[in-house]
Structure formats: C-alpha cells, structure tokens
Design a protein around this nucleic acid. Sequence first.
RNA 1: CGGGGCGUAGCGCAGUUGGUAGCGCGCUUGGUUUGGGACCAAGAGGUCCCGGGUUCGAGUCCCGGCGCCCCGACCA
Length: 581
Amino acid sequence: MSKLLTKTLREAPAEAELASHQLMLRAGMIKRLSSGIYTYLPLGWRVIKKIENIIREEMDAVGGQEINMPVVHPAEIWQESGRWYSVGAELARFKDRWGREMALAMTHEEVVTDVARQYIDSYKQLPVVLYHLQTKFRDEPRPRGGLIRVREFIMKDAYSFHRDFEDLDRYYPAMCQAYMNIFWRCGVDVTMVLSDVGMMGGSTAHEFMMLSEAGEDTLIFCDKCGYAANEEVATLQKGEPLPRPASVPGIEEVATPGTTEVEQVSQLLGVSTKVVMKTMVYESGDRLVLAVIRGDLDVNERKLANASGVTELKPAEPDRIRRAGMEPGYLSPVGLKGAGITVVVDDSVSDGGPMIAGANKAGFHLKNVLYGRDFSGTVRDIALARSGDRCSRCGSPLRVTRGIEAGNTFKLGTKYSSSMNATFVDVDGERKPFVMGCYGIGVGRLFACIVEGHHDEKGIVFPMTVAPYHVYLIHLGESDDVKEAAQRVYAELDGAGVEVLYDDRDVSAGVKFNDADLIGIPVRVTISKRTLAHGAAELKLRSADEVRLVDLGDLALQIRNMVAAEKRKYNDRRVQYPTVW
RNA sequence: CGGGGCGUAGCGCAGUUGGUAGCGCGCUUGGUUUGGGACCAAGAGGUCCCGGGUUCGAGUCCCGGCGCCCCGACCA
C-alpha cells in the first residue's frame, strides 16, 4: 500500500457529481486527462481486468472466440459500409503522413465483417462468434458523469455470423443469457428492454439497463405483463379511434383567437382534446418534418426521426415555419405547398374520423378535417408512451423510470455483410451474405454501474467478484511483533491465492479504516497489539457491521472460505432473462 | 450546438471600495502519538486559465479566446 500509486481524497473534486464518479476519484481509481478521457490508476485497472475476465468467461461459454482488432482504421472500410458518410462528427477522422484518410475505431462492424469474409467460406463453419475488448473513440458531444459517458472507452463487442435469420434467432437468446450472467456476476442488476436500433441498423435490439435516477435513458414498464421498453420505441394503446361517419361535411373555418395550444382549442370549442389535431414541425438539415398526432398524445421524436428517415431532428424555428407557409400555434397539414416537407401522421389520426386542425392562419382553426381526403402523409406510430398510458400488450397502466445502459444486443441482419460483400457458400451452393448479430458492453460504464449500485456514505462496497483485492490488511501500531504478524498473514494469504492489499503505512488507525471503507475491498483484516494478545486478528466484511476475532492459525482458511462464499453470492446465481417477447 | 455555472497551491475553498495572495486538507523534515481522517515545531509549493485593454497599480474592471462541469439533442 505504501507503494501503491493512488491518492485517497477526503473531499471529492468539484467536477464530480454522481456518487460513482466522486467515489472513483476519491478512492484514486481514475484520473481525468481531458473531457471524457480517463486514466485508470492501479486500483481501477484491477477492477477493469476483473470485469473483463468475467466477460471473457461468459463469452467463451457461448462459443465466442477472442480476437483483437485495431483502433485505427483506413477510411475505405468505412466507405464500403457507407458509414463514412452517414456517421457524423462522432467518428474521429484524420490523415496519416501520406494524406490517406483514417478513422479512430468507434465500433468494429466493418473490421470484423472484413475478417469474416476472408476466413469464413462455408456454411459448415457457421455459426461463428468473435469478440474483443478494445478501446473505442467516439467524439461524443457531451461526456458526463465520470465513467458513465466518455469519449474514449473500452468496449467488449461481440459479433455473430449465421447462415440465416433462423440461426441468429436461435443464438440470440443464449447471448442474452450470457449478458444477464455477466451483469449479475458483476453485481449489477439489469433489466432487459426493447430498444431502438440506432446507428447500428438492423431489426431487433435490446438494451440491458441498470435502473437508476442517474441514468440517461427513460424506460417504460408494465408491471402486469412485464413489457419493458426504452421510451424511444415503447408502444401504447391509444384507445378507440374516433368514429368516422359515412359522410363528413367539408372543411369549415372557425375563429379561435389566442388558442395556440390544443388544450385552449378544446376548451374554446367545447370538445375533447382527442378531437383536436396536434401538429408539430421539426427540421432536419434543409428538410422540414411535420408530425400530426391526436391532441391528447405527445410526439416521440425518436420514432418520428425513424419514420421520416433522418437521424437528427430538432424543433423548427418559427421563422422557418412561416417561410414554409405555416403559422406557429395554428399549424396544419392541410393545404401545404412547397417541397421538402415530409408529413408523418400518427395512426391515432389516420384511423379516426374528422378532427379540428389549425388553419395555418393566426386565430383560425379548421373543422371536419379528414385524413386521406384533406391531407395525406406517411402513417406511422409516432406516439410517446407516458406514465399512466395503457400497455400495448395488456392494457395496464405503464410506469416510467430512468436507467443506465450497461450493454446492448442487436440483430443486425445483413446490413454489413451485404454492403461489404461478405458471403459464404450455403448447402445449395449459393453465395449468401452472413446474417449477423452484434453485442456490446461498455466496460468502464459497467464499472461505474457497479459503484453506483454498491456504495454507502463511507465509500464503495465492492462485490467480491470485481473488487480490486479480496482483502484489506491493516496493522495498527508500529511495534515489531504486530508488523511481523501482519507480514506473516500477508505471506500466508498471498500463498493461498488470496489477493491482499496490505496497508503498511505508518498512519493513524482512523486513516487506515477510512481508506479501507472508501476503497471498499470486501474483507478487512486488522492486526494490532490488542488482537495479538488473543493470538488473533480481527475480521470484518465491508458490507456488514460485525467484527470478530479469529485465531491466527485459522485465519487463512476462514478468509479463503469467506472469499469463496462472497464470490458464490454473485457467481452462482443465474438470472433467467425474461422471455416475454 | 442551445441554456446554466465554474476556472486562485495536488484537492476543497476565501480573497472587501482595484493596493502586489491566504485558509483547511495533503506534501517534506524533526519530535510526541497509535483502534475511526492525532498533536507540536519548522518548511516547500502560485504564469491567480490564456491573450489584449483600462489604470500609477488588475486575482478583482472591460473585450476576446480556451478549458471544465451541469441541463437538453446523440450513445456502451
């Protein structure tokens, strides 16, 4: 310990706000170099290695083969997949000395696909699962929360290659189970939720979320049937569509001064908000996207972006709306002219009868507006699920919580294999693109999740499986017999394969105890004149209050048992992942 | 990129009407202590984020930049 490169801090640096961030800084596990870029100090790095080894074991158990792919990629491979052009500034690009375009790895689909097309020729070799633990760089717009969201990070990414979708479907649950095992063994309770496919592309995706207010994602749950989804994709029951009479009278303009919100219109006209159309305008580059939804619902921007085929949306500026011939506060999809406007209509509107819409004219609305007759657009579900909305599966009220995404799984399909011409010869002699899955875990983020979930007022309380050391050994007082006894205990434990951090510093008892609590090593062993008088050492679990004296002769055995028992708490339990979908 | 905040010793902070920088913790040396962040004494440590301006004089006022944190848009 006296030689260990660390520095425990009594006070947390001002830059840290989250418990995990403060504690990792205070315990001397990480050091910030630049925004979102961290050095792991010895204690922190040991934890990372523990996590990585758990991941390796579980990946190997589902047939994974570990490889290592480069951090620096030539532009060509990203151009092949098309992502050189579709991904924005988060892909860090630079030129090498010859002026060749290069990129820092942000993820490795392209590279692994390149490996697969070279080394997998036949269906007989499939399925193949490759994984690696590697540094990635994503030039995130906003790093935050210490290790929760960084720019440079270690990620475990695994990629599976299959003959067909059926085989991917068969394999996918095994990977999900491996994920549950990893998180549980690290002491992190996760919930698997349906998620958006994001920039990865592909069909089905799940995220593994640790529920926490510190989380960046909003999650929608149904307690009754177990439906769980990221808000980005969560569905809901929207209730019966509005009745659609056989004949609907033509559009009629009504004066509605000062009613720029759905609520005000419904009050003025004495109708339910369900009869009022809510129209929102977003912009994406030079395109405008008009979202039309029933007045009692809200627009889900992620769904809207997906529906309109763009990656980024933001609410349009009023000036821009007016230039396009519309009137903020009285927006309407009726009578739109001008190019570059995409209209996306929620099914709550398209399925129903006549509604009230804005007139694109200040102070006026239109009655009897009918989708199909008076306006058109792409019909999609673009509704935002909110607390209390009804579950699309069973109709029960939905609940909303926040979560930290610790990992995710995707059914990628043939997006990369097709674009990069990665094929194999199937039984029928035909060349077919691999059907791929990809599976990621942010290692540093998982570390942060562990600390976020395992701490108290005094510091971290590590699960034995990921603790930097098993035992924190303290001697109190500088007398030779105490120091010698401590050294013997250290040697004995070390010889028995127990990882011991020996606090040999000549500092007061309080300092040692407080540092022990802060660093959070699971077992604390104290040797002092007092314990030696009984021929014993004091044994304490970080997670419990009780201390007990253990005879020096029994100490090593007892500690070994303790370490094993603590590991078993996490390693033995296998959490079955839910199969509601 | 929009909104908010902060940059003074390794960390946490103070610094008045503009007058030449301080406190606590940590660090070094010596001594006394030794079961929950001890005590005494002596020290070391500062481009006050950077650049420009105002002024006899700027940590303090003005302008410009940079860095960092928090809230949003994006993701492991």
